[in-house]
Design a protein around this nucleic acid. Structure first.
Lengths: 141, 141
DNA sequence: GGCTTAATGCAACATTGTTGCATTAACGGA
DNA sequence: TCCGTTAATGCAACAATGTTGCATTAAGCC
């Protein structure tokens, strides 16, 4: 499991413990490949015979978001495993409204442009957050 | 109340009734000027002595979003009264993380650029959704 | 003013999210 | 490899978000 190797490294590097629940939640996210809710994760794991308290799942997801191991996707609701490196800075999502598949990407030019627009409105931008929804290549028919 | 005049026109034009609860929710949104949750709205109205069931508030907010009278802001959670015309197409938000003030804007050039990027990923974009958070001119000190 | 029916209220429920405290298990050192 | 420390999890209890079906009310027509 390459996924788990990465998890172990990130957690250890930041001084967090590598626990069973954390490994299981990451596996569930990796398996889903599209946004899943905390409740979805709980059900997925239950089917495999392992119970996690919902409080635990929320805390793990909070930690994962903090460590850039996962992202919250607002447009559809739910969390996805991060596929980009932490250093990329801004993270954007393209979600298919039909099949739910998600692609993550980063675009520096877009970031700069957005900063300028915000500046014109008197704002100093810290976080960019953008999601597009539409149809993926498979669902366009 | 100019707000209410606009509401009456939009609702009548689309064949919806102009009811007390709908007028009250719009007034609350207009008064807030920043994202407020359905629960916030219920409490605001309660302070003015009028009770609305939470189900009613959810249904009214759904309708307002459909009619472009309000928007859901994901970054901070909550709803805001729409300040742009429905014809503007894509709507974007800039929220101040300090005071919560919100500015809505549209940028056609940005939309086109985003469409191109999505195209390169094989996606056909339908909805653009972008929110920036940072500091407004007042809070930058 | 009365009729029709859209809109609201209510009951009941599922999901999301938070806090405090008891219990468990990760992991570093003996 | 056991043992102690303490981070992490589980549990209880709660608040907020959100949905559905059905009874009741009131908006807007005549």
């Amino acid at each position: 499991m390459l996924e788990i190797q990465g998890l172990i490294q990130v957690l250890k590097a930041e001084g967090y413990r590598v626990t069973q629940p954390r490994k299981r939640v990451l596996e569930a996210l990796a398996l889903a490949q599209r946004p899943v809710s905390p409740y979805d994760i709980q059900k997925m794991l239950l089917q495999e015979g392992s119970y996690l308290n919902h409080v635990t799942i929320y805390r793990i997801l909070d930690l994962f978001c903090l460590l850039n191991l996962a992202h919250r996707v607002s447009l559809v609701g739910g969390f996805v495993k991060c596929t980009l490196g932490a250093k990329e800075g801004c993270h954007r999502f393209m979600v298919c409204r039909q099949c739910g598949v998600l692609r993550e990407f980063a675009d520096k030019a877009l970031c700069e442009e957005e900063n300028e627009i915000a500046q014109d409105l008197g704002f100093h931008t810290e976080r960019h957050f953008s999601e597009f929804s539409g149809l993926c290549s498979n669902c366009q028919v």
